[in-house]
Every structure is written in C-alpha cells, then in structure tokens.
C-alpha cells in the first residue's frame, strides 16, 4: 500500500523544509565563509531530494511489500499504546512537582495494571516494591539526584 509510504515521505520533506527555512533565517554565508545555516541547509535539501526519490521509487517500482500500513495498524491494541505513551508523557510533566517517589509509584501502577489486566492489589504492591527498590539503588547506593518534588520538606 502506497499511502503509508507517501505519507512518511511527505513528513520527511516537511521536516527537511522546516530546517531549510530556519537555516536561511540564521544565515547561510558562503562556501568560503560558511554561516551557521550552510550545512543544515544542504542537509535539509538532500533530505527533501531523497524523500522525493523514495516517492518516485514507490510509484515507479510499485513496490508492494513494504509499508503495508493498513494491515500493520488494524487489529492492534491501540488503546494500550496510547495509554502507555500518555502516562509516560504525564510522568515527564509531573515528575518535578510530585517528586520521584510518588510519580514513579503512580506511573508504575498504570503500567502494571493496563496491558496485562493485573489485579489492583498486585499492581499497587509491585509498583510500591519496584519504586522502593529503584529509589534505594539510585538515590542511596549511586547517589543520583532524583527530584523530591512536594516531598522536598522531608529532605529526601
């Protein structure tokens, strides 16, 4: 199926074009006195060229085996993927506020719970245990500085 191939190539062309535009903005200079934008501009232009090449290749060779996205995407557990991605994003957002212990505990409950239909008790228990073990390992044994967030006052 070609739509997926065309779609991904168009995305890459867009990506390259964004860099080209930004490169022009910061100054290309000349070959003898290259500006900060010269090489990104060239790289972006090449990316556009190669992506166009991919499109031509797909159309001309009618390559069917690759990028069969309809089949690749149908019948998959989309809910699980989205839930995992969303919870990881949320983790990044709240980590500094909630602190490592609480944020990790919560995200682990979700991860243990959602994909495998674990019981709540099991998920909470394992999340607590895992959080405690990693905290002990990283914060105490390895002296990493993990954010303490709202537990700052506890001096953790």
């Amino acid at each position: 199926m070609k739509t997926g191939e065309l779609f991904s190539s168009l995305l890459l062309i867009l990506f390259g074009a964004l860099f080209c535009r930004s490169s022009l903005h910061i100054g290309i200079g000349s070959i003898g006195a290259p500006g900060p934008g010269l090489i990104p501009f060239g790289t972006g232009a090449l990316l556009i060229l190669f992506s166009l090449g991919t499109i031509v290749e797909v159309i001309v060779t009618k390559r069917a085996e690759a990028g069969n996205s309809a089949v690749l995407f149908s019948g998959r557990r989309w809910g699980v993927i989205l839930a995992v991605l969303a919870s990881l994003f949320a983790y990044a957002l709240v980590l500094n506020f909630l602190g490592f212990l609480l944020a990790t505990f919560l995200v682990l409950i979700i991860l243990f719970k959602i994909p495998e239909r674990q019981s709540w008790k099991g998920a909470v228990g394992m999340a607590a245990l895992t959080t405690a073990c990693t905290y002990a390992l990283f914060a105490y044994a390895l002296q990493s500085s993990l954010p303490s967030g709202i537990f700052e006052f506890l001096g953790l």
Partner: peptide, 23 residues
C-alpha cells in the same frame, strides 16, 4: 499477588521514609 504483603510493603515503605527523614 496477595493483598497483605502488598499493604505491608507500603507500610514498611512509609516507615522507612519517616525514619530516614527524622533528622
């Protein structure tokens, strides 16, 4: 997993946290 070990782990955790931060 059984509920009791899970709860006792949480309790132990909290106790540990309090102990460590007491000073």
């Amino acid at each position: 997993m059984n509920a009791k070990p899970a709860i006792s782990v949480v309790v132990a955790l909290i106790a540990l946290m309090l102990a460590l931060t007491a000073p």
